[in-house]
């Protein structure tokens, strides 16, 4: 068991584990909605559009998290605003904004000297998480999970029957805005762990794996959180042992767990045919 506990003798590895688990759980639980409501592309866009915010914060010497959060917040509002009017299709508008913002970020990056810091933005550096970062990550996790719990029945209902919600006076646009806001928060923490390019994996993959295993929403959320926690820990241990990128290792652990879930679901279907009526 030494190989399993050895890496966590170091304080930076303990911080990394705590951060990865908090981030993983936040993204996984929120990801259940992202997957079910087919918002994966929105999550991807939000991660990419944070880049200019991160770079500007880096150049100005401000907190990267705050810079990323500001950029993600702008994106959330912009997407909600664009999807409100029907002139441009939502995915088209997102495609335009995503690539434009990302290009601005890359352009700004090319003007800085320190490539090392900036590669952390693209690929994440959970090993460099500071105590201050950890507090922010914990705060975001608490906020996102609390909001999902408090507005559970509203988020659920507007997801599967927006018409009934509207008859009750509950506007689907309002819960969509709430989800986009939470998505922005989750993305900023995800960037710390796996970077801009891979953040979407934390949102989508554990939730997609859990969706293959159960069709009960709370169970699906718990399962996604569990898978994510396992992948965060497993990915960190593997990256320590192989001296490989921590972000990529965590994401690959997620991918492997999805493959396992898919294989299990297929086997179960063959073994026990779907119930007929």
């Amino acid at each position: 068991m030494g190989w399993l506990t050895d890496p966590f003798r170091y304080a930076f590895m303990q911080n990394a584990l705590l951060a990865a688990v908090l981030i993983g759980v936040t993204c996984a639980v929120l990801g259940v909605y992202v997957v079910q409501r087919r918002m994966a592309f929105v999550g991807d866009a939000m991660a990419h559009t944070t880049l200019p915010g991160l770079v500007i914060a880096h150049l100005g010497g401000w907190s990267l998290s705050v810079g990323g959060l500001a950029a993600a917040g702008v994106t959330a509002v912009a997407i909600a605003w664009v999807s409100r009017r029907g002139r441009v299709k939502e995915d088209t508008a997102i495609g335009v904004v995503l690539t434009g913002m990302f290009a601005v970020g890359v352009l700004l990056m090319s003007r800085t000297r320190s490539f090392r810091d900036l590669s952390h933005m693209l690929f994440g550096n959970v090993l460099g998480v500071t105590a201050a970062d950890l507090w922010l990550i914990a705060g975001v996790a608490a906020l996102v999970l609390a909001a999902l719990a408090l507005f559970h029945k509203e988020l659920e209902l507007t997801s599967y029957d927006p018409t009934h919600a509207e008859v009750l006076g509950l506007r689907p646009g309002l819960t969509r805005l709430l989800l986009l806001g939470l998505l922005a928060l989750a993305v900023v923490t995800g960037i710390q762990a796996v970077g801009v390019i891979l953040t979407n994996a934390l949102l989508v993959t554990p939730a997609a794996a859990a969706a293959l295993l159960t069709d009960r929403l709370p169970v699906r959320m718990a399962l996604a959180a569990l898978i994510s926690t396992g992948c965060a820990a497993g990915g960190l241990v593997a990256s320590y042992a192989l001296e490989a990128s921590s972000g990529a290792s965590i994401v690959l652990a997620c991918t492997a767990s999805f493959a396992a879930a898919a294989a299990f679901a297929t086997a179960r279907r063959q073994f026990r045919p779907a119930r007929g009526d």
Binding site: L157, Y160, D161, V167, R216
Partner: peptide, 29 residues
Amino acid sequence: RVAYLPQRGDIDWTFPVSVARFVLAGRYV
């Protein structure tokens, strides 16, 4: 006091809720 019963196509039937939970949404008002 008013219930609008939508056509079946208005609902995302793939969403992970049980029949009991679906019917419970009638109480939300």
